[in-house]
Design a protein around this nucleic acid. Structure first.
Lengths: 330, 330
DNA sequence: AGCGGGCGGGTAATGGATTACCCAGCGACC
DNA sequence: GGTCGCTGGGTAATCCATTACCCGCCCGCT
């Protein structure tokens, strides 16, 4: 594979000039630039990335570590990050931690080894591994969930308030026994959504009971099981707040199997405005989170931190929007 | 940040020994390995990736370039690739080409520059950029769509046959005027699905007319528009074959807006078994593609090619499965 | 004319891990 | 006891682009 010295030889200049010409640094004679460019094209020269990064001590790459590639919420974040990063010539490498602390840790190690310019991540429960980034001085931004023990830039959604509003909406619609299916304990969004749910019940002077609450993985199967359990009780819920769209799939499937009509028999509001939410019958009421915007904001914060890592950590909280549809109307 | 020489000094050995000890190469005295390990841990040493890759002339990384991160079909492929790659210590970097030849080209350049061990991609229409990989001798595997002008390993779905079966199924159900909404011309899967649709009509001795066919982007909005057009015609279709799940969303939305009942008024079969397919009313008949398996097979082929790039190119064609649900039953 | 300054461009140091090559030391065998 | 061979481990070359440093040339000013 062609090296810079090959290009230099072909253009009849030194390697330094080739490097300067190709990177637009310093002033190089127009004619020489053209000659270098021509030689590079003819040889199909592509600079050796590792050599460049080794010398520069940094790669124009940001790592994005998300907890689930198959969750549209996170892929929308990814798209936001990508769009912003590309504008300024950075590449994004997408890593899937699968809610596993071990995989997250592994990807963080790789990010450090590869000397990426920065990291954006949706942290899983354990946080110890993130400390490594801080120790190394690698800029990073947390999205969706805060880091318990680290100071950092944060981009969050005001999910507790959103959960509260959604629950209040169910109350207002006249549902009596409102339940909640949320994510695993310790996952901040799951905890917050549960807290918001409880806030709303409290404001409405309803007593909340753990009998109407289930916590499971943020996946369809867990939610399916939870819904079956809840609905099989002597005093089943007549409405449910569901913490993400994959879970909503599980719940809807359970209702379908038991011949229970959403909206009429059991009111539903789920987090995340999936593309299919309007297609089910009745249309699903949702809490729409600004996922793409989370991505763009996080990317901009990261870029700012890459150029100045001394800036004080900031927290950006974005609002979510309740979209009332048929599934929460009797 | 700690370097290998720091570790060497702390352990009282040479850098060569540190390298050998940490990489488990050659034989190093047990006691020295322990000392090195201890020193490395204490310093929090992480090898410098660029330096390592520069020397090794290759990174344990494969690039996966897919055309749409937000399409569950592709994220399922990604998961398959990741699972296999991780088993053997490779990392996967996921790049989103967005069906744009330019972005694809850009990512291919980056993959070459970074000297990744191999590339898996779902090629967009233009193929010229892929030639660069071949020229450089970078192993690559194409998934979902073949490369017109390149010899390479290929992992495909027999999408033409699947489209044909799906269409034949609609015929058998008694639908008379079967239409098709597929992806852009030149995108092989889109062409194949259309061809399979035509095959089936031909076998059934129906004449096919372009009036019942629409081609658009593989997205919901395009399909929505197409559906509105088709259904607004004097002689509208009474069934539709839809080329992916995002498009199905657009079509279902259009039907909803016009008060047309899927199944009864218009039979539907769509490609890709989305998680929500069973939740719409009536449940959506689909052609389920083995996306995860495409990913695992492609990853294994790539790994094989990385260890021996002289092996002859192979083509693996996986079958798809028609799942008949309510939307294709009158 | 002489000197200073600025600009273009070359030489060589640099980044950090891997590994080819070589050497010391020890055991075994004659 | 001497020599061969093997093993463990050190020294230094290597990967390749970037860039600090330096030099020569030309222009302009005094």
């Amino acid at each position: 594979m062609a090296r810079i010295s090959d290009v230099a030889a072909r253009a009849g200049v030194s390697t330094a000039t080739v490097s300067r010409a190709l990177n637009g640094k310093s002033t190089v004679d127009r004619e020489l630039v053209a000659r270098v460019q021509k030689a590079a094209d003819e040889l199909g020269y592509q600079p050796n990335g590792p050599a460049r990064n080794l010398r520069r001590q940094e790669a124009a790459v940001v790592a994005l570590i998300i907890s689930d590639v198959e969750n549209p919420f996170f892929t929308a974040i990814a798209r936001g990050v990508e769009d912003v990063a590309h504008e300024v010539g950075y590449s994004v490498v997408l890593c899937n931690s699968d809610e596993s602390a071990e995989k997250e840790n592994r990807y963080i190690d790789i990010a450090i080894q590869e000397r990426v310019a920065g990291v954006i991540l949706s942290p899983t429960a354990t946080t110890s591994s993130v400390g490594k980034l801080a120790d190394r001085g690698t800029p990073f931004v947390a999205v969706d969930r805060p880091l318990p023990s680290q100071e950092s830039d944060l981009v969050l959604v005001d999910t507790r308030v959103a959960a509260r509003q959604a629950t209040a909406h169910l109350v207002a619609q006249g549902y009596e026994r409102i339940g909640c299916i949320t994510g695993p304990s310790g996952v901040r969004t799951a905890d917050d959504r549960l807290a918001g749910y409880r806030d709303a019940l409290k404001s409405a002077k309803r007593r909340s009971t753990t009998k109407l609450v289930r916590r499971t993985e943020y996946k369809a199967t867990g939610a399916h099981r939870a819904a079956v359990e809840l609905l099989g009780q002597p005093e089943p819920p007549d409405a449910l707040l569901i913490a993400n769209s994959a879970m909503a799939v599980g719940v809807l499937r359970a209702l379908q199997e038991h011949g229970i009509r959403p909206g009429h028999d059991v009111g539903l509001v789920a987090f995340d405005d999936a593309p299919w939410a309007e297609l089910v019958d009745p249309p699903l009421s949702v809490v729409a989170q600004p996922a793409y915007e989370i991505g763009t904001v996080a990317a901009r914060l990261l870029l700012a931190r890459i150029s100045d890592n001394t800036r004080p950590p900031t927290t950006t909280t974005l609002g979510a929007r309740l979209i009332e549809r048929g599934s929460s109307r009797r």
